[in-house]
Design a protein around this nucleic acid. Structure first.
Ligand SMILES: [Mn+2]
Ligand SMILES: [Mn+2]
Ligand SMILES: [Zn+2]
Ligand SMILES: [Zn+2]
Lengths: 139, 139
DNA sequence: TTCATATTTGAACTCATTACAAATATTAAA
DNA sequence: TTTAATATTTGTAATGAGTTCAAATATGAA
């Protein structure tokens, strides 16, 4: 909770209960959630919270760079805390998004072929380890 | 035109005029277009063509693996001919998507941390070389 | 308290994509 | 060539994620 408040303070974002809750959700759940997932969970605790507030807050966090969007599925944005750079794996079967801890020679570059880099994204799609094992045992 | 017909034949896709035109557009324009861009261009030549046909055809091409979707912008899908694997750069200022010819140590892998890989995506966002130069001269 | 400002809320709206059924084209019997 | 079965295209309606916007609420200073 303290870490989270610091992140907001650093960016001069007023730490409202809603914003803190959203950021707290992202810190506790490393599941790269959708807006719907965040909202469905938070509304249990904050029955009055609005989906628009979730959108507003996440957009603000993205502008300030403390949250990063993942455009992977093609249907809706997934959100990730902007901690250290890492790659992702999307399972086409169960929909889960995994963090990958692989080396990438471009993570510390800030320019490429003359273009100025602001964000780097590396991701893979396929069938995850867990789904592969499930499929094998069922066959 | 012959190359294109072969691609469809290889996948047992009936080479209709609409499908050929869509694939031909992708072969001639390496601009990673949206459905709207493809439609707007083709409707000049084929006034009866439907946007749904563009969607249907591209979805079919993707299933067969001859076209690859790019989920980069977050707002709409961009399409690319599935030629050799390559990375992309999206300019946040002009919206253009560039092909990058950079080396990547993961392009020939088909499994990672136990997950089975079907698709690999690497892309960068920022300000493109052309926009940087324009900005500098205007300042 | 009073006023100004920031934040939240909910409803209306936008827009990309999909669903679906009717229209049209194609192909294979008969 | 007709006829019937199948594939493809088309247009409209529906879906759903995300945005817009104005009203409601909260915050904080004067
Ligand atoms: Mn992650
Ligand atoms: Mn490309
Ligand atoms: Zn899985
Ligand atoms: Zn540019």
């Amino acid at each position: 909770m303290n870490e989270i408040k610091k992140m907001l303070d650093n960016e001069n974002i007023k730490p409202t209960y809603e914003r803190l809750s959203i950021l707290q959700y992202l810190e506790k759940n490393h599941n790269h959630p959708t807006v719907a997932m965040i909202y469905e969970e938070l509304v249990k605790k904050i029955p009055t919270i609005s989906k628009t507030t979730v959108y507003n807050s996440l957009n603000l966090f993205m502008e300030k760079g403390i949250v990063a969007p993942l455009y992977i599925t093609g249907s809706e944005v997934r959100y990730d805390l902007s901690t250290s750079q890492h790659h992702h794996f999307l399972c086409e079967q169960c929909g889960k998004i995994y963090d990958l801890t692989i080396d990438c020679p471009y993570l510390n570059k800030n320019t490429i072929e003359g273009h100025q880099i602001k964000q780097k994204h590396g991701y893979f799609r396929g069938i995850c380890k867990s789904c592969l094992e499930k499929d094998k045992s069922q066959k």
